[in-house]
Design a protein around this nucleic acid. Structure first.
Length: 271
DNA sequence: CCCGGAACCTGAAGGC
DNA sequence: TGCCTTCAGGTTCCGG
């Protein structure tokens, strides 16, 4: 599902198609995907606008419009953006551009949303730091974790704490850092914090290099899949056995989220 | 404040 | 083979 590496890939690959293009018309095929304003007003306010930039923050995508407002999109679990798609079975909205091309918002599960904001800060002010930004340091991560008593995994998933990490990259990062997903965040040792920091960086960078992970419907704007899932170690139980020690991968539920980990490499080493 | 759970959805997977 | 149930999970909202 689209997390930071997937949304970043969508942004990078969509940009050349949409930059400086004017939106000629919009088909909304599933009204409830438009959060605000009402569909009729939404269309009125978007049609005729030029796309002056495309940016990402966390898992949100921002189309900067010439009028100064922002068309915001969130893919949630099964959304994808495809240029000139031929498969329209799950198309929920279509943006027609003045170069004859069209952006298709596909979403089998209908969780995805798009809406208008006058100010991007309405969305971004509620988000924690970008994990790949320079100001996100091991010290910053340690500071965040030291204030939380919750299990470390749901802390990684909380977008107001760190933006962009979802279920699969949280599992992969904790595996790489050899940390049990249920270990209370404030009980991580200094060494574990550094390992987790490095793991988050390498897991996200590697996924970016591979253009995202194509599990659950994610495809890139040109219709091709990403390949980051080929390098997953534990997410979704891949392989069933730990690639490092051969121990069977375990699945538990942490705060309602399916969680895969190696009970031997990620030991219960507290209290 | 913090937490748990429901709601939103429907394709896929599992059980019988 | 096929019907029925359960699961998946990002975000928001509601209740305790």
């Amino acid at each position: 599902m689209p997390e930071l590496p997937e949304v970043e890939t969508i942004k990078n690959e969509l940009l050349p198609h949409v930059l400086n293009r004017t939106i000629k018309s919009i088909d909304v095929l599933w009204d409830r995907m438009v959060k605000k304003p009402a569909v009729k007003d939404f269309k009125k306010q978007v049609v005729g606008q030029k796309i002056t930039s495309l940016t990402r923050r966390g898992k949100y995508l921002f189309f900067h419009l010439s009028g100064g407002s922002y068309l915001v999109m969130h893919m949630k679990m099964t959304g994808s953006l495809v240029m000139n798609s031929k498969d329209t079975k799950f198309a929920r909205a279509i943006l027609h551009l003045d170069n004859g091309k069209a952006v298709y918002f596909h979403d089998p599960r209908k969780f995805g949303k798009m809406w208008l904001e006058k100010d991007a800060a309405a969305v971004t002010s509620r988000l924690g730091p970008e994990p790949l930004d320079n100001d996100f340091t091991p010290a910053a991560l340690g500071n965040i974790l030291s204030k939380r008593t919750a299990p470390v995994k749901p802390v990684l998933l909380d977008q107001s704490i760190i933006a962009g990490i979802g279920n699969m990259y949280a599992d992969e990062s904790l595996f790489e850092a050899k940390i049990h997903p249920e270990k209370p965040a404030n009980k991580l040792s200094r060494a574990e914090i550094v390992r987790l920091y490095k793991a988050i960086q390498s897991v996200l960078q590697k996924a970016l290099k591979n253009k995202g992970a194509s599990v659950r419907n994610y495809i890139r704007p040109d219709g091709a899949p990403g390949s980051a899932h080929d390098e997953f170690n534990v997410a979704h139980g891949v392989g069933k056995d730990c690639p490092r020690c051969g121990t069977p991968i375990r699945r538990i539920v942490v705060r309602g989220r399916g969680t895969y980990f190696c009970p031997r490499c990620q030991p219960h080493n507290w209290r």
